[in-house]
Amino acid sequence: MTAKRAWAEIIGPCYSETSLVRRFGWTLHGLREAVAALEVLELVTEDDVRLYPAFQFDDGRPVPHLADVLTVLHSGVESPWTWAQWLNTPLVTDVGGELPRNIDRLRAGALGELLLEARNDAYAWGN
């Protein structure tokens, strides 16, 4: 499996800048402001294509409290690809079972737990 394919499997479907603006009625300026404020996760490919993982949106809006989580993750490492992996990778239990992805836990309202885990991971990444 190539590295690009592995990332595609981790991240899942993405919107381009144009498709996100068109589909959800955002303005380009509004999207760029949301990215700068860490309200929307933007991934930039090695050939400078801007992508927006679909997993972070519900009905065209970012999942509530995503900015809180991204802000904490940003404190440890400035790598949106790492943040995307942290949010969207299924977790596996010690006995091989699968736990919900962090983005799904955020949707379910586990903000306190996620912020604690994000702080711990951000600290580890930063050291």
Results as ranks from 00 to 15, higher is better:
6 A>E: 11
7 W>P: 03
8 A>W: 03
9 E>Y: 09
10 I>M: 01
11 I>F: 02
12 G>Q: 09
13 P>R: 13
15 Y>D: 02
16 S>L: 13
16 S>C: 10
18 T>W: 03
18 T>P: 00
20 L>C: 07
21 V>K: 11
22 R>H: 13
23 R>G: 04
23 R>M: 10
24 F>T: 08
25 G>E: 07
25 G>N: 07
25 G>F: 01
26 W>D: 01
28 L>K: 15
28 L>T: 14
29 H>V: 13
29 H>T: 14
30 G>D: 06
33 E>R: 15
34 A>P: 09
34 A>T: 01
35 V>S: 03
36 A>W: 06
36 A>P: 05
36 A>S: 14
39 E>R: 15
40 V>I: 14
41 L>K: 02
43 L>T: 05
44 V>Y: 01
44 V>T: 15
49 V>T: 14
50 R>L: 10
51 L>E: 02
52 Y>T: 02
52 Y>A: 00
57 F>P: 04
57 F>Y: 09
59 D>L: 13
60 G>S: 08
60 G>K: 13
62 P>G: 09
64 P>E: 10
65 H>A: 15
65 H>W: 09
65 H>L: 05
68 D>N: 10
73 L>Y: 05
73 L>C: 08
73 L>H: 04
74 H>E: 14
74 H>V: 06
74 H>K: 15
74 H>C: 11
76 G>K: 02
77 V>E: 13
78 E>I: 00
78 E>D: 15
80 P>E: 13
80 P>M: 03
80 P>T: 12
81 W>E: 11
82 T>I: 08
82 T>P: 06
82 T>H: 14
82 T>Q: 13
83 W>P: 11
83 W>S: 12
83 W>C: 09
84 A>M: 01
87 L>Y: 07
87 L>S: 02
87 L>G: 09
88 N>E: 06
88 N>I: 11
90 P>A: 04
91 L>V: 12
91 L>F: 06
92 V>W: 00
93 T>P: 01
94 D>F: 02
94 D>C: 00
94 D>S: 09
95 V>R: 01
95 V>G: 04
95 V>D: 04
96 G>S: 07
